[in-house]
Amino acid sequence: MNRLASKWRGMVEAWRDYPLQQGAVWDGRYRIERLLGMGSYGQAYVCLDLQSNEFVLLKRNKPSKGGVGIELLRRESAIMEQLKHPQIPRRIAYSKRRRDEALIMEYVEGYNLEFAIYEKKTAFTAEEALRMLMQLMEPLRYLHEQGYVHRDVRIPNVLLRGGALHLVDFGLACRIGEQLPPGLRDALGEGSGLARDSAAAVKRRMRGAHPSSDWFGLGHLFLFVMYSGYEPPEGAEEKSWMEELRLRPEIEHFVGKLLQDEAAWTTTEQCRQELSALLDRL
């Protein structure tokens, strides 16, 4: 009986979250061109703004997620309204339609780093990966100076557009030092009941309300990029990233500082300066 009820709930949720149809017009202004992606709490669409005749990104709350999806979307909208940086999408509007809500923002045409690695099979050298981090330091430094932390610096949230990197998806962002409401923390899996495996440890470090969480995200992103070109010897036992990647000592030292539990720098600008000096020596 429980299995049947669970299956029925899943069917209802899938129906409620059925994507908006191509050609449909949201709020009399934004025509749906295509579904761009679907996350845990939202759906993203490329739309044509019928007033400006420009393409925009429409991020809609997932109806099945109820109030949590709407709360996250409203938080994201409020934060993006405070941000103006060329590597961060510009917030355009916030729209409500019956029980659904949507955040309208600048559409950055390109593909993300996850697509580059896993679909295009692009491999990067250590220096190229460090230069990616250097580009991402700019929006992160700005974000932290405005008093916010991204908390989700990962390869799906880095867009490549004409050689420039853009930081996207501020759905988990918060104020530096902010304690999220208990209900929201539990919904996001950030409560005291979080599992203790390695994946949970990474999540716990990345979700802190301090700039060091984004530094950790950069370090983790660097390892993802480097492992895209790594082929372990056949039959070899799994080793630490230091043993497997065999980076130059100065690179290993810097990445280790990004990943360590204790904050290695006081500000992101200090982190950026150290990376800049490292790149000058390579």
Rank of each mutant, 00 (worst) to 15 (best):
K7H: 12
D261Q: 09
G193F: 11
Y118L: 12
R196G: 07
W15D: 15
R31Y: 07
L180N: 01
K96Q: 15
M137V: 00
Y45K: 06
Y230R: 04
G219F: 00
A5N: 11
A129M: 05
I92N: 05
F216W: 00
Y41T: 09
S213Q: 03
N2I: 04
V255C: 04
C271G: 14
S276M: 09
L4R: 14
L4V: 12
D100E: 15
Y111W: 05
M242S: 09
L130D: 05
F216A: 04
P139R: 04
L72V: 11
Y107K: 02
L72R: 01
E250D: 14
E252H: 08
E237V: 05
Y148A: 05
K203Q: 06
D197N: 11
E127M: 11
L20H: 14
S240D: 02
K96A: 13
L50R: 14
E244M: 12
R3N: 15
S52N: 04
L133C: 10
G110H: 09
E237R: 14
K84P: 01
L48P: 05
I251Q: 10
S95G: 05
L48E: 15
W15Q: 15
P232Q: 01
L113Q: 07
G42M: 10
A200Y: 00
L180C: 01
L165G: 09
G163W: 13
E243M: 04
G189W: 02
W241K: 02
R75D: 13
L167P: 08
A78S: 15
E101K: 03
Q82L: 08
H220Y: 13
D280W: 11
E119C: 08
F224Q: 12
H150T: 03
P181D: 13
G171N: 10
L221Q: 00
V168H: 08
Y45Q: 08
Q43T: 11
E145H: 13
G183D: 15
